[in-house]
Write a protein that binds this DNA or RNA. Structure first.
Lengths: 222, 222
DNA sequence: CACTGTGAATAAATTCACAGCC
DNA sequence: GGCTGTGAATTTATTCACAGTG
């Protein structure tokens, strides 16, 4: 699923699998590096990073080492280089187009959130079924009718999608996106989604988060 | 942190720790049970649950067994009983009050989301620093100024909070909430939060989710 | 000497496999 | 026979501990 490749001397290519947990920590490292850059730090040690991300320094070193050694022993990591490297690894050095399906309240908030937070991730297409919303401009993009999605996305090479539809229709939306060539989906619909072959799905279920927190709120008293 | 208690014969109390991952799966089970109830199913097996949640049947059985055995061998689990039991475990059988800090676009969307999705989880207080928003009614609640938070929450026994403020101020908001007695927080601010003693924090970082998905979108092609 | 990179040790979570029961 | 409940085996993730290096 997620492979790393390191070409080594003698044309030997080692292929290995990078744990998903590692990938999911990279954005936190990247954010820290951006902060450090603003603070004009040039070098950062795994220990410094540990303090400001909450991850252990060993874990940080191990995560980074998956992509090859680019720290300097006795010194640390160069902030600019590491940042650049992480951006490349994540695929953020060129602009990323995202399609949003579901322009309800949550969808719209997400669209604007993305627009504000990321200069290199851009919502370029929005779909919904609600006739009231179709045709409106959300975060600078005209909302299209969801029935057009298949044809409209053909040959568009959009690989990332955000799904913010009500529960019950998310699976079919995901399947449609998958056949339109989307390879990774951030899903907010509260339902179990069967990942189509070759598609990565991350589900954020706000209701479930609230409910498990209710347990912890209760559990930690008494 | 999260303890379970089972009183056994002879006044012996076994105290053990229930893995956090288990707690976080319970809402998915609960949702499925609500669906099953609508379908008038009376009994469900771990295998059925597996198919509809994506978790393995062994895992489901193990998770449920942490709270005591309430299935019937050879038959399965009673939908109504199991649902009721899970609601009690999660602390959802009585109304849960939630304070929202940050009534920007995301905060407002979340407030309405909660309002629609949950009859027993209710946003009862909202705080923000923006003078434009303070005094407005969001999801039926008047927005108060964040500077009032400490005094306003005193003796309110609100144990759950949603934090949807911009990065940079989340830690102080969390600390303030903690000293106001909040025990569990769902944080959307994109920064590392040091959990105050006895407070459970779940962070949902939309930017990070997007960025790690960018990796998977890229990784799975070529 | 300080810090990286990494095998080895440990801890945590999942899956296997089956005994026990309806 | 079919399904739960659970120890044992396995896999996965994290931490330890230290060799290697600028």
């Amino acid at each position: 699923m997620n492979r790393g490749r390191i070409s080594q001397k003698g044309a030997v290519t080692i292929e290995f699998c990078i744990p998903e947990v590692t990938i999911r920590r990279l954005p936190a490292y990247l954010r820290l590096l951006s902060e450090l850059e603003k603070e004009h730090a040039e070098i950062v040690s795994s220990r410094d990073m540990s303090i400001r991300t909450g991850y252990s320094s060993e874990q940080i070193r191990k995560d980074l080492a998956y992509f090859g050694a680019f720290g300097t022993r006795g010194v640390g990591y160069r902030v600019d280089l590491l940042k650049k490297r992480l951006r490349t690894i994540l695929g953020l050095d060129e602009e990323v187009s995202v399609v949003l399906v579901g322009a309800g309240r949550l969808g719209q908030a997400l669209a604007r959130h993305v627009e504000v937070q990321h200069h290199n991730i851009r919502i370029t297409r929005i779909f919904d079924v609600d006739e009231e919303i179709v045709g409106e401009i959300v975060a600078g993009v005209r909302v299209e009718h969801a029935s057009q999605m298949g044809t409209s996305l053909k040959d568009q090479e959009i690989r990332l999608a955000v799904v913010a539809v009500p529960g019950g229709v998310a699976q079919e939306v995901v399947d449609a996106l998958a056949s339109a060539g989307v390879r990774a989906i951030l899903n907010f619909a509260p339902e179990f989604i069967e990942s189509p072959e070759g598609v990565a799905i991350t589900s954020v279920d706000l209701s479930s988060e609230m409910r498990s927190l209710a347990y912890f709120a209760r559990g930690s008293l008494e």
